[in-house]
Each structure stands twice: as C-alpha cells, then as structure tokens.
C-alpha cells in the first residue's frame, strides 16, 4: 500500500483532533481529541518506519527508531491520561462541570 494513504489518514485524524480541541468545551472530549492527535502521529511514525524497512538493501534495523518513538508516545500518553483524567475528576468535584471555559481563574 502506498505511503500516501497512511499520510492522508493521519492528517485526517489529526485535523479531526485539532478541530475537536478547538471547538468542544467538554474537557473529556478535548482529552479524547488530544489522544486522537497523538495517535495520528503514532500512525504516521509506524507507516514511515515500515516504509524505510521495506526499501531494498536497507539495513536490518532500518526504521526501528520510529517504532521506538511510538512506544514512548504510548507510555507518555498513558501517563497523561491518568493524570489528565484525575484532573478532570477533581475539576468535576469542585465546580460540578467539565466545561473548560470555567477554568479561567488564572486570568484574575
């Protein structure tokens, strides 16, 4: 499968994520959109890694660093999810809402 398809899919996912973050006010949905963007990048990394590996005459470990990054991102994302969800839970407890527009106290 040509690499283009992966790229278009990743861009589509990423854009959905961006638009979601920009337009939605619900913290959980924003959170999910962030995950979407991260995974779009992951997809891209894996696709390029595969592509590099498939080049004739490539070294045995060609493109493995891309897959390594993906693991890192997944670990970080998992950590982020746990912290982020905890924040959202605390937020809900305090202001009984998950609307991010209420979170502008720092301005004052």
């Amino acid at each position: 499968m040509p690499i283009n398809y992966y790229i278009f899919l990743a861009i589509a996912l990423f854009c959905i994520g961006v638009v979601g973050v920009l337009t939605r006010r619900n913290a959980i949905i924003i959170f999910m959109c962030v995950e979407l963007m991260l995974n779009a990048v992951n997809l891209l990394l894996v696709a390029f890694s595969k592509m590099h590996h498939a080049v004739p005459g490539a070294a045995a470990n060609a493109g493995t660093d891309g897959q390594l990054f993906v693991f890192f991102i997944m670990v970080v994302a998992a950590a982020e999810v746990s912290v982020g969800l905890a924040i959202i839970v605390m937020m809900y407890r305090n202001i009984h809402s998950v609307d991010v527009n209420f979170l502008n106290r720092l301005k004052h």
Binding site: V21, L22, I30, V100, N101, L103, N104, R105
Partner: peptide, 8 residues
C-alpha cells in the same frame, strides 16, 4: 484571557 480554547 485564561480561555483554554483561545490558547489552543
């Protein structure tokens, strides 16, 4: 402004 949306 303190609005997360505008920062993003």
């Amino acid at each position: 402004s303190g609005q997360v949306g505008s920062y993003v």
